[in-house]
């Protein structure tokens, strides 16, 4: 059964095109359960596209993607199953503005997992406490700061009890003082053993929690290594150039 799968995420020779544009080229990636991966690379290198393929927000044309033992094909049931196990946090939060924070958190458990409302609310409260904003539960997203919104978005994903969490530049729309509060939540999550794939340029975060850093350029994985080696002794000239630019 799914949960006995060896890898949380398995990508084999994945290729994807936008029209004629070859956006993902021969992607091979194996993520073990509990592993934490940071993905970086220049703008337009295909980082978002790659992690969005993992929960089928984007469709790949070529190669195999297996998530928690479930192969991602055109089979709609498989797609639903995968999305249930994979949480995602977006750059622009994408909270539902017409629902309260609590409703944002309980919506999917109630309507997708068929959880009773009281149980869903108790679980939501637990996760809102974990991201340190239980007192905001009855507010609407529009009444919160960016950092608070992003923490709600993380709590909302956690409410589905996902086995894997995807983060697509979760802090790049935030002011510096809010970045810290979101990163703290992510570190806490990492220390709790969550399987995580994070697209981020927060290198301190990568050093602190990542098992592996992946560098992408022009749709390909150019280099991957454990963080210390990756930052100290980058092998590829492209990686060197990129690190020089972001680390000054």
């Amino acid at each position: 059964m799914a949960s006995n799968a060896q890898f949380a995420v398995e990508m084999k020779s994945v290729n994807k095109w936008y029209g004629q544009f070859h956006v993902l080229r021969d992607i091979n990636l194996e993520v073990k359960k509990g592993e934490r991966i940071v993905i970086c690379g220049p703008s337009g290198s295909g980082k978002s596209t790659m992690i969005r393929c993992i929960n089928r927000l984007e469709e790949h044309q070529n190669g195999d993607i297996v998530v928690d033992g479930i192969p991602l094909t055109a089979n709609l049931k498989n797609i639903d199953d995968v999305r249930r196990e994979v949480g995602m946090v977006f750059q622009h939060f994408n909270l539902f503005p017409h629902l309260t924070v609590m409703e944002n958190c309980t919506l999917a458990p109630i309507w997708v997992r068929k959880m009773p409302k009281a149980e869903a609310e108790a679980a939501a409260m637990k996760f809102l406490t974990r991201v340190k904003i239980p007192e905001q539960a009855q507010k609407y997203p529009g009444q919160l700061s960016g950092g608070q919104q992003q923490r709600v978005a993380i709590a909302r994903s956690l409410c589905m009890n996902p086995k894997i969490m995807l983060f697509d530049e979760p802090t790049s729309a935030l002011d510096p003082e809010m970045i810290k509060e979101v990163l703290e939540v992510m570190v806490d999550l990492a220390q709790g053993g969550m399987t995580m794939l994070c697209v981020t340029h927060e290198m301190a975060f990568a050093r602190q929690v990542a098992n592996r850093v992946i560098f992408m350029d022009q749709g390909q994985i150019v280099e991957e290594n454990e963080p210390n080696e990756f930052f100290k002794h980058p092998k590829s000239p492209r990686t060197k150039l990129f690190l020089e630019q972001i680390l000054h």
């Binding site: 639903d80 999305r83 977006f90 909270l95 539902f96 919506l107």
Partner: peptide, 9 residues
């Protein structure tokens, strides 16, 4: 995207 990522049909 957020709805789909949460698994809503």
């Amino acid at each position: 995207e957020a709805s789909q990522a949460l698994g809503l049909p």
